[in-house]
Write a protein that binds this DNA or RNA. Sequence first.
DNA 1: TTAGACCTTAAACCCAGGTTGAAGGTCAAG
DNA 2: CTTGACCTTCAACCTGGGTTTAAGGTCTAA
Lengths: 142, 142
Amino acid sequence: MKISEVAERSGVPASTLRYYERLGILAARRSPNGYRDFDEGHLERLDFIAAAKRLGLELPEIRRLLELADTGTCTGVKAALQPLLAEQIAAVERRLRILTELQQQLSAAQAHVDACPDSDEPCRSECAFRAFAGTAAGLDQE
Amino acid sequence: MKISEVAERSGVPASTLRYYERLGILAARRSPNGYRDFDEGHLERLDFIAAAKRLGLELPEIRRLLELADTGTCTGVKAALQPLLAEQIAAVERRLRILTELQQQLSAAQAHVDACPDSDEPCRSECAFRAFAGTAAGLDQE
DNA sequence: TTAGACCTTAAACCCAGGTTGAAGGTCAAG
DNA sequence: CTTGACCTTCAACCTGGGTTTAAGGTCTAA
């Protein structure tokens, strides 16, 4: 199977497939003419990669997992995935907390700004400017 | 006030203050020796910038808001801020929905992987590998 | 045999929001 | 008068996950 067919069937652009090969995530055999030659196993591998990406794993992490799946035991893969998933779940919970906080800060900012009196004065450090700057404290990174 | 004092009082590195000046967000007068010369107004401006960043606005957006605050009316600033805040609130809600979905997918993946039998077999397309790749469908970008 | 559709590579570019480095000017203290 | 702490500019670099481009090889159909 040539690269464009994999691209079409997987929805992953050919340029990305070549990039994944560079990263050591997806190696194809080569035909005698030098073209990459993929099989169904590579499509499964791409399903794995897509799932891992959707779940928030980074490509180096995915590479490690795939190396383990290629060389290690089923139990080993399971043992590697478990803490990774637990960490992702914790990270998602952190982000949910931060976003919920952010939601409240945005609502507060909206209320502050809405409460500003209309005025044709220049607005250097007044009303909306101050109301806005005054909100959103105590919010860490995202 | 020289740049290092602003850096210390605002917590924003001097390199970032220079960067903000390049972006047209924070312009300081110059002393006769060429050094930047800041005042309290610049610290207020930095509070505004920090708040806007925490609320998820991007620097070009912040620049537009500050230009408006510098030249326009109070009412104009308020009118610019309102739809921006509404859009940020909608964006945060979208992200909350996606993260909540992701949380469920991660839990499902965790359950699938936990349910895999331990085995010393090689794990190419078996158990954890498949269980993991099978989850996490229908999740769009973040 | 030549057009055009496909494949190959290496290297440069993209995003945002900065950070870092080199080369040099300014200023106060000892 | 020199040392060291500041300040200046401009340009290059960083992250992550790719995309784009240039230059060239291969294959198939007319």
